[in-house]
Structure formats: structure tokens, C-alpha cells
């Protein structure tokens, strides 16, 4: 795992606003990995994930002048990306947004209002330190959770049948089991926090 890119500072954002491509590239370098993982977690294909990430950067170009705050830009990007991914995921599952997808997207769930972006739990968890802690916790889990989470994380393009087959469980069990394992992991993380 590469070390964290340096925190984007006000200078970087101001330089991007002034038209400095290198400053923009620094933002892309800093956030691309987290945005990609965030949208892929919605079960999107690589093509759809690319679409969602690109849309996120397009929205940032439009809105950077209203954000400006280096403390908020990560949460803003992540919130925007997750929203795009969720919309695409819902469309792919057949929840057709018939009337007018684009307008629906804008009116219901356009980019977050820049005044009230909350600290996003997803942003905290998507740091290198937290990632290592997550995996140390997974290592202590019982089966099938330990194997399931490992497989899920390392075979991002595998389908449900493939994953279930490799775990030796019926396809219909994979989804519910995954849900229980994620709940269990969440509970263990919460318990860790309760300790000093």
C-alpha cells in the first residue's frame, strides 16, 4: 500500500482555481484511488465505475470555486462519487429512472450543497492506517467471514456464483452471509473504539 499522498492544502486548491494543471493533477493523484474503490464497492463494472468517477471530477471542476476548503474537498468528492455510483447501481438493477434520469439526478441528488458537507465516515475508513486496522480485524474473524471478506476484496470482478462456488456455499447464501460478515466486522470495529 502506497503511503498517503500529502494533504491537499489551500495553495493547491488556489492554484487549481487559477488554472494550474499540475495542481489539479495533484488532487487527482491524491483522491483517485479512494474514489475508484468507493464507486466499485457499489458493484459497478469497470466501465460504469469509470463513468461515475469521471462525473465526479466534472462536478468538481464546476464547483471547486465554491468549495475552496481543503478540509472539505475529500468529503465532497466522496459524497458526490458515492451518489453517482448509487444511481448507476440502481439503474443497473432495473430501477429505471424513466422520466428523466439526468434531471432526476440533479434535483434529487446533485452534487452535495457545499455549505453542509458532513465529515464522511467513508473518508475516515479509506485511509491507509484504517485499512490496515480493518484487515487485522478481519484476520481474527471466524469462517466463513474471514475467507469471504478476503475473497470479496481480492476478486473485485468475480460474480456471485463464482464467489459462492469458491467458498463452497450456495449462490443464494452469499449475499446474506456477506451482509452478516460486514455487520460482524462493523461490530468488532465499534468494540475496538470503545477500548482506550
Amino acid at each position: 500500500m502506497a503511503s498517503e499522498a500529502p494533504v491537499s492544502d489551500q495553495h493547491t486548491i488556489d492554484a487549481a482555481l487559477a488554472g494550474d494543471q499540475a495542481a489539479w493533477d495533484a488532487l487527482v493523484t491524491r483522491f483517485s484511488g479512494r474514489l475508484w474503490s468507493a464507486v466499485r464497492a457499489y458493484g459497478l463494472s469497470a466501465a460504469d465505475a469509470a463513468d461515475a468517477v469521471q462525473g465526479t471530477w466534472l462536478r468538481l471542476v464546476e464547483n471547486l470555486h465554491t468549495i475552496r476548503d481543503p478540509e472539505r474537498i475529500g468529503a465532497w468528492l466522496l459524497t458526490t462519487a458515492r451518489r453517482e455510483a448509487s444511481l448507476l447501481s440502481r439503474r443497473n438493477r432495473g430501477e429505471r429512472l424513466i422520466g428523466d434520469p439526468a434531471i432526476t439526478e440533479h434535483s434529487d441528488s446533485g452534487p452535495p450543497r457545499t455549505g453542509n458537507v458532513h465529515p464522511d465516515p467513508a473518508l475516515a475508513v479509506l485511509s491507509a492506517d484504517e485499512g490496515r486496522r480493518l484487515w487485522r480485524t478481519v484476520e481474527t474473524m471466524h469462517e466463513p467471514c474471514r475467507s469471504l471478506l478476503l475473497l470479496m476484496a481480492t476478486a473485485p470482478d468475480a460474480g456471485v456464483h463464482q464467489l459462492a462456488g469458491r467458498l463452497g456455499m450456495p449462490s443464494g447464501s452469499y449475499g446474506p452471509t456477506r451482509g452478516r460478515c460486514l455487520n460482524r466486522l462493523r461490530t468488532m470495529l465499534t468494540a475496538q473504539e470503545a477500548q482506550p
Binding site: 466499485r40 464497492a41 455510483a85 484504517e130
Partner: peptide, 16 residues
């Protein structure tokens, strides 16, 4: 932390 965030974090850290 929702499921998608946990999955994203696990995958990001796995680097695959």
C-alpha cells in the same frame, strides 16, 4: 459506516 464503505476500504487496502 455503511457496507459500501467497508467494502471499499477493504479493497483499497488489499490493493487488488
Amino acid at each position: 459506516i455503511d457496507d459500501e464503505s467497508l467494502v471499499a476500504a477493504l479493497r483499497l487496502a488489499a490493493g487488488r
